[in-house]
């Protein structure tokens, strides 16, 4: 029983981590007033960059950095479209979801002789080293280092947004850019930075898939996590810990499916697999209620417009 519970916790952590990074990326971008539907695409690019760089250099940490850089580079496109050109942010985000996976698979085929997956890459370490707890049930708690990184990122973002003046500036830009502008805050620059950070975080999310959970990039490595992260942002009411909690809930439901799917129970695995999604809807109906986006979310800022 104890080992099952520990296993449940371990898997919850494992599955929620890529989502946490993606969702945090969504939070920072949307809090500054830019809707980011392209998290999925940014995560895919990150996932590929991480696996490829780790494979070629043998250093997974370089892979992680590359993933952040790649995610940020794609996010730059989104920032140019939505801030400089004041384009429709939803459309640009959907474009990112095509361009990201397209580029990832395109380069994958170029670099790895037409294959759509990379060879196995060196992964990031576990928090207590490989052999710690080996064999004992507590080994389930020896989670990937990315799990801790994700929690740290959530805490840092919370502190940044609510306890520093730069964070409060970001919030003001997302709520009322005109007011922020009159107080001398550079709305465009703030939004650019937030979208870039969002891409970097989403890239990390992709990396925590290919450098921790599976050790290579495949076309289905990122399949829907970006969208789940998007849902977690709304679910968590656009706050770092809210989104973190939403991702944990989601990871927990997924873990439940795996632990329950062990064969002791007479529930078909496909029905069990629906559990996380059904659970999310139920939780929304009964516990969360209406969520209100930052006021200027998705609205391009035009100087002098009322």
């Amino acid at each position: 029983m104890l080992s099952k519970i520990l296993l449940l916790i371990g898997i919850t952590m494992m599955y929620s981590t890529p989502l946490v990074f993606g969702a945090l990326g969504g939070v920072i971008s949307e809090r500054s007033g830019v809707v980011n539907i392209g998290i999925e695409g940014m995560m895919t690019v990150g996932a590929f960059a991480a696996a490829a760089v780790s494979y070629f250099t043998g250093n997974p940490w370089l892979g992680l950095l590359a993933a952040g850089a790649a995610g940020g580079a794609i996010a730059l496109l989104h920032a140019i479209a939505s801030v400089t050109f004041k384009a429709d942010q939803t459309i640009s985000g959907i474009a990112i979801n095509f361009i990201g996976p397209g580029l990832a698979l395109f380069f994958c085929r170029l670099m790895f002789s037409k294959a759509t997956m990379t060879p196995p890459a060196k992964t990031l370490p576990k928090i207590f080293g490989e052999d710690f707890f080996q064999g004992s049930p507590a080994g389930n708690l020896n989670v990937d280092v990315t799990v801790v990184l994700a929690l740290v990122c959530a805490a840092v973002m919370w502190y940044f947004l609510y306890k520093t003046k730069w964070g409060l500036r970001v919030l003001s830009v997302g709520e009322h850019p005109a007011a922020a502008d009159t107080l001398g805050i550079n709305v465009s620059r703030t939004r650019y930075l937030c979208v870039l950070v969002s891409g970097v975080l989403a890239g990390f999310g992709g990396a925590s898939m290919t450098l921790a959970i599976i050790s290579q990039f495949t076309p289905t490595a990122i399949s829907g996590q970006g969208f789940i992260a998007l849902a977690a942002v709304i679910f968590g009411k656009w706050t770092p810990f809210g989104a973190y909690g939403a991702c944990l809930l989601f990871g927990f439901a997924q873990a439940l499916t795996i632990v329950l799917g062990g064969g002791d129970y007479a529930v078909p695995s496909q029905i069990l697999a629906m559990l996380p999604y059904v659970l999310t809807i139920i939780v929304l109906i009964f516990f969360v209620g209406r969520s209100v986006a930052p006021k200027a979310d998705g609205v391009p800022y035009e100087k002098g417009q009322r």
Binding site: F85, G100, L105, L110, K114
Partner: peptide, 22 residues
């Protein structure tokens, strides 16, 4: 050339649809 070039192309078209609204 990898077929994914089409996805990049479609993505770019959608991206410029967003831009060309200006």
């Amino acid at each position: 050339a990898p077929t994914e070039i089409i996805n990049i192309m479609i993505g770019t078209i959608v991206f410029f649809v967003a831009l060309t609204r200006v």
